[in-house]
Amino acid sequence: MDPRPLELRHLVKSYVRGAPNAVDGIDLTVEHGELFGLLGPNGAGKTTTVGIATTRVAPTSGSVRVNGIDVVADPARAKASLGVVTQFNTLDRACTVHENLVFHCRFFGASRRAALDRADELLERFRLTDRAGDMVFELSGGLAQRLQVARAIAHRPTIVFLDEPTAGLDPQSRIALWDVLGELRSDEGLTVVLTTHYMEEAEQFCDRVAIIDRGRILVSGTPEALKRQHGDLAIATLGFSDEESARRAAADLRGFGTVDEDGLTLRVATADGAGAVPGLVNAAGPGLRALALAEPSLETVFIALTGRELRE
């Protein structure tokens, strides 16, 4: 049987004895050619999961296979078949853009000639050719990120991990990055696993996602399926003129679903969707000044599952 690009079984990671596990029993299988998103708030365990899958963090228990290779037992061979872009820029600052690619290829056994050719090809493809001779600290965030992706795939891995690849990028750089990933997938059948806390992006680009929180997978599936499962759920955000009316309304609104209080603002997760609006207005009373209803999205799925917003 053809091994899966990524298989995580009962994965647990505890950095500090006594503290809650950073990864607390994750099971996950990624299929060939998939673009898989790991979503979760800060500290959910995304980086830890990616770190374990890419040999850089030792799991406390459980197993990880990348293309069928046990990454704990055979890290060197696993490294040859995967690529990674870490959350922070790890480009070689003592080298130029071009050299970063060339040396990476040579680490993976390419001859001098082959490494030079591959570097030129990648510079072209990632539109970095005119920056080839620059030292990497001269690059803007967007270009540095693009170079990191180019480097991650330079040795032709079949699966690449990207940890928050779009964090801190301007919208244009973000679009450019998604374009590049799309091309790589269609041209080379690359499997991509990425982490993000931009739910909208995940919804738009990922084939499947897993929402993780406190080291556990809460749900996983296609964005459509997740929204359907929690589809009758809507998040109403109500603004009040004063705290007193907000507090009073909060009590009355509990009949509609879970209520999250935040000063003059109340957030109500209601299962009735838009149909709940007249009732909400009624229950909110005369102090109500504004009401917004969010369409079902991965964001609302997350709030429904955790009772918390994604970005705090």
């Binding site: 890419t54 040999t55 850089r56 890290p75 060197a76 061979r77 490294k79 040859a80 990674v84 870490t86 922070f88 820029n89 790890t90 480009l91 070689d92 600052r93 003592a94 990476h104 680490f107 993976f108 056994g109 480097r151």
Partner: peptide, 22 residues
């Protein structure tokens, strides 16, 4: 000296660690 840079802040050592050898 280079190790101090590579381990500090940016951890660019990670790139060398991803080379396929122990």
């Amino acid at each position: 000296l280079p190790l101090a840079t590579e381990l500090g802040g940016t951890r660019e050592i990670e790139d060398r660690l991803m080379a396929p050898l122990p």
